[in-house]
Design a protein around this nucleic acid. Sequence first.
DNA 1: AATCTAATTTGATAAGTATCGAATTAGATT
DNA 2: AATCTAATTCGATACTTATCAAATTAGATT
Lengths: 185, 185
Amino acid sequence: MSEELVVFFKALSDANRLKIIGLLAQQPYSVEELAALLNLKASTVSHHLSKLSQVGLVSARADSYYNVYQLDEKALEAKSRNIFSQENLAASVADVDAGAYDNKVIKDYTRKDGSLKTIPAQRKKLEAILRYVVKAFEVNKRYSEKKVNEILSRYHEDTASLRRELVGFGLMKREGGGGEYWRES
Amino acid sequence: MSEELVVFFKALSDANRLKIIGLLAQQPYSVEELAALLNLKASTVSHHLSKLSQVGLVSARADSYYNVYQLDEKALEAKSRNIFSQENLAASVADVDAGAYDNKVIKDYTRKDGSLKTIPAQRKKLEAILRYVVKAFEVNKRYSEKKVNEILSRYHEDTASLRRELVGFGLMKREGGGGEYWRES
DNA sequence: AATCTAATTTGATAAGTATCGAATTAGATT
DNA sequence: AATCTAATTCGATACTTATCAAATTAGATT
């Protein structure tokens, strides 16, 4: 899950928390000492330490009156090594809808009945629209040019352009001689 | 300066910005495409890209209508390698006042005239107070026990305790036989 | 030159959070 | 058992920021 990474980075997105990490890298400190060193109240430092401990960067041990915090150097090293690993990068996009762009373009360019308002001029949008239109054809079935035009006319009157672009982008194939078209898988 | 590190981590402390990085790790995208994929408005994505580009993680190239953003993998790798380097840890504590803890303890335990309200029971505070008191003695000069007591009496009536602790913590030395004391450098 | 389109900037709003002071808790010392 | 002390939790406040809508800008196409 990507949320864990966000929490980790948020834990480090504060100047005073970075100072705490830097100080604890030298030696363990109590909350009270950290508060004095950073010129903050103990309650504030406690809040910061809680965030750092949530992500496993620091831990506390009780010593008489004091809660002495120490840096977990192992965790620090481990985290820094695989922050931008393939797994983490992949995890961050796991819940991104890959079809969202096509869907938006289709939504922008079609009427309620599914026909096209216009044929997009931009290449990327045209591709998205063509991927949408080509679904009207069965895979591997042969169509005459007349039949192709009839189907495309449901989408836009300029069937010749649609037909040409479908072939141009490789979404449909045309047999050299006979004027037959088909959609490949 | 530590502020640079904070900005870097803040740039990464957002789920949508991490998704952008994950997406750009696969291929470059335009602002419009990212907006559709993340279900955000273009202006919001622009805002995110601006933060990422501030820290050098992404850059844009113009392509017809579009601003196509790409991930700077080199920068990503370089950053992740030395995030928690010695230099960065040291930089984060550079502007921390190392004497702040002693100062706070001294402030808490002394009156306006510099004398001690009480002698701290806690070891760490006692150390801080003793470091403060020992400054009343010149380095390497010899003092009789009587003179030591006279000086210490400016701070607290229990001169015997102060004297004993100063020696115990190694801040002052006593010659075995003759009852002479001195402060070492 | 005029017109489009995507991107950015600006302003407003809502959500998040660093900080402090007060109250409470946990634990050790007496 | 009673009392201290440091730490934590809680409530309030001020500041930051993610997001959107509207206005503006930059650049390409016609």
